[in-house]
Computed example of a mutant assay.
Amino acid sequence: MGLYRAELRRLVKRRFVRYLTLAGLLVLAAIVVTTFLQNQKIGPAALAQAERSAEQEFRAAVEWTEQWQAECERSHASGSPDLNRFPPDCADIGVPTRDSFPAANYLPLTFIFAEEFPATLYTVASLLFLVFLAAGASFVGAEWSSGAMMNLLLWRPQRLRVLFTKLAALLTGVVAVTVPAVLLWTVAHWLIGALRGSTDGMTAGRWQSFALTELRVVVMVAAAAAVGFGLAAIGRHTALALGGVLGVLVLGQSALSFVAEAVGVRYPEAWLLPVYWIAWMDSSIELTDHRTCAGAPACVPPTMELTWVHTGALTAVVVALVLTVAAWTMRRRDIT
């Protein structure tokens, strides 16, 4: 417990981790404030204004269409109509109807919590994923670069115990920040819905669905921190870990996409990590093989469903592999 408490203090004291986490939370707070200011509750005044705006747009469209028809008729009457601008029959220029300008299109933004909140979880998940990926890499990578790891191992020579105690302290910190952040994010957007939109339509089942998605957010953020930690432990440098992740996300994904398209695999999207991210957040995603029905109008293309289970299994394999290699290099390599 002494080593674990020391690592927790070390994590909290590390300025890069503190400032990066604070910056991420401030960005989330700024997004919440912006969302609050951009939305408003729809009342009788807003509905009346929307009706007036729709009516004005309709009248302007009718006036423009009538002018266009008159120009078309004059062009045809001249004996040499400009068919590049006008149709052969001026009657083909349809006059818009009032139904084409619903008042709903002119209402100000309003936040419907039940419909719009799930999409906001992508924002908090993506930002915290990046923040703690970098924080996890820095937590161990900076200690190798500064020589603090060598000093620590002189005091506590059990290499694997030190490594995994650091990881445990890191994950504790990640969960301690992510869980309140996600809960506050939920409360803030519920208040935005209550004050600047609507919270109607929330049932026990919908709340349960949101809670499960938020739980998956916490798990994925913790996995990102563990991967960043493991890569930095392998390379003994923060930049190497972040560079490796960037290489996989950009170069590796581009190469896999190109190869999948070139060899004509059945579901090329299944080789792309963003598809698994969507499956994790939305619980499932359906992929369609359109190539099978190329040139066959009556054909029904085959589909494949990826679920959060597939993403979870892939993530577990990646985390286990990275940490296993990190433990092996920690045990085998010299501490210099």
Score class of each variant (00 low, 15 high):
residue 191 L to N: 12
residue 241 A to L: 00
residue 212 L to M: 02
residue 167 L to C: 10
residue 262 A to G: 00
residue 226 A to P: 04
residue 246 L to V: 13
residue 152 L to T: 15
residue 165 T to E: 06
residue 180 P to R: 11
residue 211 A to Q: 04
residue 275 V to M: 09
residue 187 V to C: 00
residue 253 Q to N: 02
residue 165 T to K: 08
residue 241 A to C: 03
residue 265 V to A: 03
residue 214 E to G: 03
residue 235 G to T: 06
residue 180 P to L: 09
residue 217 V to S: 07
residue 189 H to M: 14
residue 273 L to T: 11
residue 192 I to D: 12
residue 207 W to V: 13
residue 239 A to P: 00
residue 248 V to P: 01
residue 163 L to E: 05
residue 149 M to S: 07
residue 166 K to R: 15
residue 235 G to Y: 10
residue 199 T to I: 15
residue 177 V to Y: 00
residue 191 L to A: 15
residue 147 G to C: 08
residue 220 M to C: 01
residue 186 T to S: 06
residue 207 W to F: 11
residue 218 V to E: 11
residue 261 E to G: 14
residue 156 R to L: 02
residue 271 W to R: 11
residue 237 H to D: 09
residue 255 A to T: 11
residue 276 Y to P: 06
residue 242 L to Q: 11
residue 207 W to S: 14
residue 253 Q to I: 01
residue 183 L to T: 15
residue 252 G to Q: 01
residue 255 A to F: 13
residue 186 T to L: 08
residue 278 I to L: 14
residue 256 L to W: 05
residue 273 L to S: 12
residue 174 V to R: 10
residue 170 L to E: 09
residue 260 A to S: 15
residue 255 A to G: 05
residue 274 P to A: 11
residue 265 V to F: 00
residue 227 V to I: 15
residue 260 A to E: 07
residue 176 A to M: 14
residue 217 V to R: 02
residue 192 I to L: 13
residue 261 E to D: 11
residue 188 A to V: 05
residue 228 G to D: 12
residue 254 S to M: 13
residue 183 L to D: 07
residue 234 I to D: 09
residue 274 P to I: 10
residue 190 W to Y: 15
residue 232 A to R: 07
residue 176 A to K: 13
